[in-house]
Structures are given as structure tokens and as C-alpha cells.
Design a protein around this nucleic acid. Structure first.
Length: 283
DNA sequence: AGTGACGCCTGGGAGC
DNA sequence: TGCTCCCAGGCGTCAC
């Protein structure tokens, strides 16, 4: 499941593999993959063809490639999306939805997505950020992320701290995996009410989130299965560094207590019953 | 305005 | 063996 680290690894691959190149051909073989492009697949193709990709940017889990037209190719990987840079003659995988060829005849860009929660679209504006993505907060690895504004905003919320971490308008890039990991490191239960957390506690949580995200980037992200891979098709290695996510029933690496699993927000959370006690009343 | 529930998707695995 | 059900979950939309 691509979250910030996985998306960042893909962004780096796009920067190496497609930036500076000019689009020659676009083939959309599944309209759903470009459903966010309101004007349709033909318009998507027309706006991309002949354009040069200027750079590769990311905010949270969104990627975008500014074009020399002033527009930008925006991508989101959803649950299972892949952006691959491969030779055009490479075998065509199942769930291949979009192919972008370049005028230099080199490797092509492919969008592959099993569950099609992700997608591509061409939108106006790319620098510094497309207006479409204005609602997405900066992420903790963004040099302009405002720590104290985040601490204040989180404490103004009246919700559980895990919900807050997953709210992309408050802080972006964190999904279920890294939320569980950051909470484990901070020894906080996800249902702890945000308005009752002290400023130092929120600062510690943010520092842990930042740490786990950057460590995961260095490990190439987390790959549970073949659904997440880099643009080169390589799996990430961070799974072996997970302390909480997906480890229910196994001993807490800190205290040895078996980790618990709870259903929460229609998703599963795992945490340590001893290190992360459940609040008396929580969300 | 802030908060939270819902639906979109597919494949793999469990259970019968 | 083959069927059904459940689960993974990011995010836009909508109701309150």
C-alpha cells in the first residue's frame, strides 16, 4: 500500500527515468484509470502528447510531473498503483491501463493498477503545486512543513489521534502502516483524544512519524506483496523494520506483550496493549 | 466548518 | 473442488 515512502521512491524513479523527455504516444486501455480527468481519455491523451516532462514532484501521496505547457500530469497510486519505466518490448502485465511512449524511443512509462483506486489526470498548473492539490497538507518531510502549526492544529481537533494522522488535510503522506508505526514509537493509542494531548506529546509523535517515514524511504518503502514496487519493479525492504503494523499476536519488540488488533475506521490497527494503553473514552 | 460514514475495486485466502 | 464471504484501504462525496 503506497504511502509517502513508497510514493517518494517512485518519484525518484520518475525523476531519473522520464523527466526531460518528450511524450510521443499515449495509449489509455482502461478509461477508469483516467476517470479523474473529467474531459475524458481522448482529451487526456491530447494534452500529454508532444509535451516535455519538466520535473517530478510529490506532496503526501500525490505525484505530479509539470509539463512544458503549464499543465501537469498528476498521479495517485491508490491502493495498488504502479508507475513503471520499462522497455516498450517488455511483456504487458495484467492491469496495464496507460502507456506513455517518448520521442527518443527509450523506455516507456506504464501505469499498472490492480484495484484501480489510483489514476492519472492532466490538470492546470504544476508549480509550485497544482490547484487541484491545494487541499493536501504539506508532509513531514517537506522543508516548509510548519511543526508548531501542526501541533496547534492537531490539538484543536476533536477526534482520535490516529484519525488525525490519517487526515491528509492536516498532515499528508501517512497511511495505516506508518500511522500504526508512529503511534507505537510514541507509545500512544490511536483512540487518544487529540484535544487532550500535550504539546510535547504531539511534538514527539511528529518526530517519530518523520523518523519512520524517512527510514522507510531509505529502505525503498514497504512491500507486502507485488503490489508496491519502484519504477524499476523492485520491492522495498522496510517490512522487516515494522514494529506494530500487521504483527498482531506477535510480541511487542519493546516489552514482549503480544500485540493486539482492533477494528477501527473500517480498517485494522495493531498496537501494544501495555505500551499503548487504550484511553478510558476514545475515538 | 468540522466530523465521520460510505462506496469504489480486485485478488487472495479462509471457511464450508 | 468450487462456491461465497471477508479483507486489504486511500480518498472523494455526502449527510449531519
Amino acid at each position: 500500500m503506497p504511502e509517502l515512502p513508497e510514493v517518494e521512491v517512485v518519484r525518484q524513479g520518475l525523476a531519473r527515468g522520464v523527466v526531460g523527455r518528450t511524450v510521443a504516444t499515449v495509449r489509455v486501455t482502461r478509461d477508469r484509470a483516467v476517470r479523474r480527468h473529467g474531459a475524458g481519455a481522448e482529451d487526456f491523451t491530447a494534452r500529454l502528447t508532444g509535451r516535455t516532462l519538466v520535473s517530478a514532484e510529490r506532496r503526501g501521496k500525490y505525484l505530479w510531473l509539470p509539463l512544458d505547457s503549464g499543465e501537469a500530469l498528476v498521479g495517485h497510486l491508490g491502493m495498488s498503483g504502479q508507475l513503471l519505466v520499462v522497455p516498450g518490448a517488455a511483456p504487458l502485465p495484467r492491469h496495464l491501463h496507460v502507456r506513455v511512449g517518448f520521442d527518443d524511443g527509450g523506455r516507456e512509462l506504464r501505469f499498472v493498477d490492480q484495484r484501480t483506486f489510483g489514476g492519472l489526470q492532466v490538470v492546470e498548473g504544476g508549480e509550485p503545486v497544482p490547484p487541484l492539490l491545494a487541499h493536501v497538507a504539506r508532509d513531514p518531510l517537506d522543508p516548509l512543513f510548519d511543526d508548531e502549526a501542526f501541533v496547534a492544529a492537531l490539538r484543536r481537533r476533536r477526534t482520535g489521534v490516529k484519525r488525525a494522522l490519517l487526515d491528509q488535510t492536516l498532515v499528508s503522506g501517512i497511511g495505516n502502516i506508518y500511522a500504526d508505526e508512529a503511534l507505537w514509537r510514541a507509545r500512544l493509542h490511536g483512540a487518544r483524544p487529540t484535544e487532550l494531548l500535550t504539546r510535547p506529546a504531539v511534538r514527539r509523535l511528529l518526530a517519530h512519524a518523520r523518523d519512520v517515514l524517512s527510514e522507510a524511504v531509505r529502505q525503498g518503502g514497504t512491500s507486502f506483496d507485488a503490489l508496491y514496487v519502484s519504477t524499476e519493479g523492485v520491492s522495498g525492504l522496510f517490512e522487516r523494520s515494522l514494529n506494530a503494523y500487521g504483527r498482531e499476536g506477535q510480541p511487542c519488540p519493546r516489552c514482549g506483550t503480544p500485540l493486539r488488533r482492533e477494528s477501527f475506521m473500517n480498517r485494522s490497527s495493531s498496537s501494544c496493549p501495555r505500551c499503548q494503553p487504550r484511553p478510558r473514552s476514545g475515538r
